Amino acid sequence: ALRETGVIEKLLTSYGFIQCSERQARLFFHCSQYNGNLQDLKVGDDVEFEVSSDRRTGKPIAVKLVKIK
Rank of each mutant, 00 (worst) to 15 (best):
S21G: 07
G36N: 11
A1T: 14
K42N: 08
F28H: 15
L27A: 03
R55G: 13
P60D: 09
L12V: 10
D46H: 14
H30F: 08
K59D: 08
K59C: 05
K69Y: 03
G58N: 14
K64V: 03
K59V: 06
V63S: 13
T13C: 01
V47P: 00
L41Y: 02
K42H: 15
V63G: 04
V7K: 15
R26M: 15
Q19I: 15
Q24Y: 04
E9F: 15
S14L: 04
K59F: 05
R56Q: 10
Y34P: 09
E48W: 02
L38T: 14
Q33H: 06
Y34I: 15
R3W: 02
E4D: 07
Y15E: 02
K67D: 05
I61N: 14
V43A: 13
Q39G: 13
L27E: 01
I61W: 14
L38M: 15
L65S: 02
C20M: 15
Q19M: 07
S32K: 03
G16M: 01
V47M: 14
L27W: 03
D40K: 04
V47I: 09
R3Y: 03
L27G: 01
T13Y: 09
G36M: 05
Q33A: 15
N37P: 14
L11Q: 04
P60R: 11
S52V: 13
H30R: 08
Q33C: 14
D45W: 01
N35S: 09
S21M: 06
S53R: 09
L11P: 01
D45V: 05
P60L: 10
C31F: 07
N37F: 09
G6H: 01
T13S: 05
I61H: 12
E50L: 09
F49V: 01
A62S: 02
K42S: 14
E4V: 08
C31P: 14
S32W: 05
G36I: 06
T13L: 06
S53Q: 09
L38W: 14
V51M: 14
V7Q: 13
K64L: 05
S32I: 06
D46N: 09
F29L: 01
T57N: 15
L38P: 13
V51W: 11
G44Y: 02
D54P: 05
G16I: 01
F49P: 00
V43N: 15
S32T: 06
Q24D: 15
L11A: 03
D54S: 13
S32A: 14
P60A: 09
D45F: 02
G36K: 08
K69V: 03
D40E: 05
S14G: 07
R23A: 06
A62L: 04
G16S: 01
G58L: 06
E4S: 15
D54A: 11
R26G: 11
G44D: 11
S14W: 08
T5E: 05
T5I: 02
A62F: 01
I8F: 01
E9I: 12
A62C: 08
K10R: 11
G36F: 06
R26C: 13
Q39W: 12
F28C: 06
D46Q: 13
V7G: 02
G44F: 04
C31A: 13
S32C: 10
K67M: 03
K64S: 15
L41N: 00
L27I: 12
V63C: 15
L38N: 15
Q33E: 14
Q24M: 14
L65V: 11
V43W: 02
Y34T: 10
A1G: 06
P60V: 13
S52T: 13
S53W: 11
Q19A: 07
S32P: 06
V43E: 08
P60K: 03
E22G: 14
L2S: 12
E50H: 05
E50V: 07
A62Y: 00
G36C: 03
D46V: 05
R56E: 08
K67Y: 02
T57D: 03
E50G: 11
R55S: 10
H30D: 05
N37D: 02
S14T: 03
C20Y: 13
S53L: 13
G58S: 11
V47W: 00
D46Y: 09
